[in-house]
Amino acid sequence: MIDLTTTLSNLKLDNPIIPASGTFGYGVEMAELYDLNILGSISIKGTTQNARYGNDLPRIAESSSGVINSVGLQNPGIEKVINYELPNLAKIFHKPVIANISGFSVEEYVYCAERVDKISNVGLIEVNVSCPNVHGGGLAFGVDCEKVAEVTKAVKKVTTKPIYIKLSPNVTDIVSIAKSAEQAGADGLSLINTLLAMRIDIKTRKPILANVMGGLSGAAIFPVALRMVYQVHKAVKIPVIGMGGISKAEDVIEMMLAGASAVQIGAANLIDPLICKSIIEKLPELCERLGIKKLSDIIGAA
């Protein structure tokens, strides 16, 4: 029997597979396809204080082995998430979830963190300081060491649950940002968010996305994400959740070897809604083949 369990701060997961925020909604659509309780956890759609419609359409452009989105944090707002989406998810998923929160000011992050901290099925709070799709908002925090530290400290002050800061890859040195978050008291880190990207329609000669730019995810970004997880894991002592282009069980092993304690699956859910299930089913056999008895033993082994 292969041991797939892993730990994120005080949260023990049955396995390291977590659907990434924004690629799994609040679970209800996916629950039509399989019992979500096989998952390690679920990172819910990013939530802001007030409801947001997001950016104009088109919000989706394709690229080789990837997708560029400019959804722009569409969400129903924190109250509806707490009163409707989270209780609803608790009915179909009986494990602690990851509450992903976003904000446009330190006060908004604090407000959202304080609210979700009190919710019983929230096991961990993931603070998104790295959405590339909102002007003058999320990304500005995530690219500046001091601002990341300021948000981290402020959120830590009002919460009891583990705080994981979700980092942007759109920076010159992700390691220094990671260290700032750690020094400011972050319990862990999630990386990477999407890479800023764009496409142009050669017939109309205009950008495909209404927002012009968006975030690239999917298999195309896996080696970049892997490199960043490797660098960050070497530089910090707190756990890292690795994500970015993971689309098969082998990628999970590779990401954990780079230093991830758990992984999130994002864009792959959009093209294969059963991908998390397939990966979880394949992991024991793959571990067996690779001589892994306890999956968490390989974290950072590369």
């Binding site: 909604g25 419609y53 997001g54 919000r59 989706i60 989105n69 569409q74 859910n269």
Partner: peptide, 21 residues
Amino acid sequence: ARMGCGFGVCMGCSVKIKDGY
């Protein structure tokens, strides 16, 4: 619409309607 997933999880094709989206 240009869609991401096609089954409601990515919010890639939301449009505003009279009562929300």
